[in-house]
Simulated scan of single mutants.
Amino acid sequence: MGRHRRGAKREVTVADLIDELRRFDPGAEVRLAIQPRMPQEHGVGTLAQADGIVWIGDGGQRGYAPDEVGERLGWS
């Protein structure tokens, strides 16, 4: 998600995000991983829409993400 076949970045739509999330346990918690060199774990905050874009707010840093997270996201 977020890249198409040739590796160029593309925008992720709400439908793309919903499709990806369907692969996971609906009861699982959701976190944001940011900063590839030292992955931090952030909670998901409120959602909003402005100018035709859906924004996911940052729910605050919870600590650092396990090494496995960076590996599975392709950051290492």
Results as ranks from 00 to 15, higher is better:
29 E>G: 07
50 A>G: 04
64 Y>R: 03
17 L>H: 03
36 P>R: 02
27 G>W: 09
27 G>R: 12
9 K>M: 13
48 A>N: 15
16 D>Q: 10
38 M>I: 00
55 W>Y: 14
41 E>D: 14
7 G>V: 06
42 H>G: 04
27 G>K: 12
45 G>Y: 01
29 E>T: 04
34 I>N: 00
33 A>Q: 03
1 M>C: 12
53 I>Y: 06
69 V>S: 10
60 G>F: 08
16 D>T: 10
29 E>R: 01
38 M>D: 02
52 G>Y: 01
4 H>I: 13
39 P>I: 02
8 A>S: 10
22 R>G: 02
38 M>F: 04
22 R>Y: 13
50 A>F: 06
51 D>L: 09
64 Y>L: 05
1 M>W: 10
56 I>C: 05
52 G>A: 01
21 L>H: 04
46 T>N: 10
16 D>G: 12
49 Q>A: 13
8 A>I: 09
3 R>G: 13
42 H>C: 11
10 R>D: 13
13 T>N: 03
21 L>E: 04
38 M>N: 02
74 G>A: 01
48 A>P: 14
2 G>W: 03
12 V>W: 13
61 Q>T: 09
20 E>L: 14
70 G>N: 07
31 R>G: 07
76 S>W: 07
48 A>T: 15
15 A>C: 07
38 M>Y: 00
54 V>D: 09
60 G>K: 06
23 R>I: 11
76 S>Q: 06
50 A>K: 07
53 I>S: 06
23 R>L: 15
70 G>A: 07
51 D>K: 08
68 E>V: 03
1 M>P: 11
44 V>A: 07
45 G>E: 08
58 D>E: 03
74 G>N: 01
55 W>K: 09
48 A>H: 14
18 I>V: 15
5 R>E: 12
58 D>S: 03
35 Q>Y: 09
33 A>F: 11
16 D>W: 03
40 Q>S: 08
54 V>P: 10
60 G>A: 05
66 P>K: 01
45 G>P: 07
6 R>A: 12
3 R>S: 15
12 V>L: 14
34 I>F: 04
44 V>R: 02
7 G>D: 04
42 H>W: 14
72 R>C: 05
58 D>Q: 03
19 D>F: 08
53 I>P: 01
58 D>F: 11
16 D>A: 14
53 I>V: 15
53 I>D: 12
62 R>I: 13
16 D>S: 11
75 W>L: 00
2 G>R: 02
53 I>G: 08
34 I>E: 00
14 V>D: 04
33 A>C: 08
14 V>Y: 01
11 E>Y: 09
5 R>C: 05
9 K>H: 12
29 E>C: 04
15 A>G: 12
55 W>R: 09
34 I>T: 05
7 G>R: 03
51 D>I: 05
7 G>A: 03
57 G>F: 11
13 T>D: 10
70 G>M: 03
7 G>T: 04
73 L>A: 14
62 R>Q: 14
34 I>S: 00
45 G>K: 00
38 M>L: 05
47 L>E: 05
11 E>W: 04
67 D>Q: 08
22 R>K: 12
10 R>A: 13
42 H>V: 14
8 A>M: 06
35 Q>G: 07
52 G>K: 01
49 Q>D: 12
50 A>C: 04
11 E>G: 07
37 R>N: 11
62 R>M: 14
64 Y>E: 11
6 R>F: 14
14 V>A: 09
